[in-house]
Design a protein around this nucleic acid. Structure first.
Length: 382
RNA sequence: GUGCCUAUAGCUUAAUGGUAAAGCUCCGCUCUGUGGCAGCGGCAAUACGGGUUCAAUUCCCGUUAGGCACC
């Protein structure tokens, strides 16, 4: 069970200030939801995650199913107790893995593609299938990257697993479509995602909140149809917006502009997998309440620090001669207690403490950034 | 001290009497419902001095350095 209330609606944009109440506490929205795929934000303890101002985490059904298996998590009392995290949680349904382990793996692309005009030779047509993933009406056959065994995930399976994982918010099982799909392929995929959406609603026995996912790729008619359909399902407590949002920032704005006005404004909207620093204000202005993104944590493990002066690659040797903090204006533990020369050394030596210090800073920095946006909405600035 | 062996990029190794190749490192770039992953691009070398030859990194001599054996 969740309860969402809107404290303020912007007059300058579709941005909204809200509070999302869950069994594990409240989330002030808009909010970043850091990614804890395997019930861990890599490199941080749960108390450290909390100290980065993180309000909610999202874990992954597919990955936790493979390892350690949802039974282990259930025996521990659910994902919160399992990882000693007292605040709200979400689990993603595994729908993204249909893409990332399927076409994404085959073609070596992410869901955001900077496609050159005319590169239609790689378009994914109706009827085509990825190599290691088989998509059927009932669900998706995967091959485990861990041991090669077959595994099947459909709407019912995903919900059953997510109920055992026990997060506050769970997502419907969908097909996240690749960026280079044709209209025909997307239309067929959407029929599947919508059918699965209904099956997820009927499969759910728990009191967890269930979010339906809007797909439709870059096609306006399909995005609109998807939003209307998902919005019409009273079994959904909120919405996810998934898939490819087009090739540019203005494209993403446009797609969110088609979709969000069609969704019941009393329910929260979560944007799946988007959240580079430069995206955040734009998606919030479009009316997004929560969003998850691997960027702050994943980039930290590659040695990148996000600062008020831009992104810094601490792996570069020049930082070995830099005695300053990562960011002079940041008040996080990493910035107040450690210097760039030391962090650079750790990154270059591949010491895990480097990943830890950078992950802490990046999450604190992102969360502070979003906190300021909440303040701006509160004061009518955006 | 004597004999033998070796010397190619920062490191580890290829190859050839006729354009010197790769891995790692280093430098730059990419990587949005997470691979502590991966990909792309770049810098960079025949120890030194002679000789043979149209042409030597390659064959020969010397120097230097290193390794091994013997005294």
């Amino acid at each position: 069970m969740i309860d969402f209330s809107i404290l303020k609606r912007s007059k300058k944009s579709r941005a909204r200030l809200g509070v999302l109440k869950t069994p594990h506490g409240e989330v002030e929205t808009p909010s970043l939801v850091p990614v804890a795929t395997l019930a861990a934000v890599k490199a941080l303890r749960s108390d450290e995650i909390a100290a980065t101002k993180t309000q909610m985490l999202i874990s992954n059904t597919y990955h936790l199913h493979l390892m350690p298996g949802e039974g282990v998590v259930k025996n521990a009392g659910g994902v919160n107790k399992f990882m000693n995290w007292q605040k709200p949680t979400m689990t993603d349904s595994g729908g993204f893995q249909v893409f990332s382990l399927g076409f994404g793996h085959d073609l070596g692309v992410g869901k955001i593609l900077k496609m050159f005009p005319g590169k239609v030779d790689r378009a994914i047509e109706k009827g085509s299938q990825p190599k290691h993933v088989k998509i059927t009406r009932e669900g998706v056959h995967f091959r485990s990257p861990l041991d090669g065994r077959e595994l099947f995930l459909g709407p019912r399976e995903s919900i059953v697993i997510q109920e055992k994982l026990g997060a506050d918010i769970i997502f419907a099982f969908d097909e996240c479509t690749p960026p280079m799909v044709t209209h025909e392929y997307t239309k067929k995929s959407l029929d599947l995602t919508n059918a699965w959406a209904k099956q997820c609603i009927t499969a759910k026995k728990s009191k967890q909140a269930l979010f339906g996912i809007v797909q439709g790729s870059r096609f306006k008619d399909l995005r609109v149809a998807s939003a209307k359909f998902i919005n019409s399902q009273s079994g959904f407590d909120g919405f996810g917006i998934g898939g490819d949002l087009g090739e540019s920032k203005t494209g993403s704005q446009e797609i969110l502009g088609w979709v969000l006005p069609l969704l019941d404004e009393r329910k929260p909207r979560h944007l799946l997998g988007i959240g580079k620093l430069e995206d955040i204000e734009l998606i919030i202005k479009s009316g997004v309440d929560t969003f998850d993104c691997t960027v702050p944590t994943h980039y930290a493990r590659r040695g990148i620090a996000f600062t008020s002066k831009g992104a810094l690659d601490l792996g570069k040797a020049k930082f070995l001669k830099d005695s300053g903090p990562l960011d002079k204006t940041c008040e996080c533990i990493t910035c107040t207690q450690y210097r760039r020369d030391y962090i650079s050394h750790l990154v270059r030596a591949k010491e895990i403490t480097g990943a830890s210090l950078l992950t802490f800073h990046n999450l604190f920095f992102f969360n502070t950034y979003v906190e300021r946006i909440r303040e701006k909405i509160k004061h009518g600035l955006i």
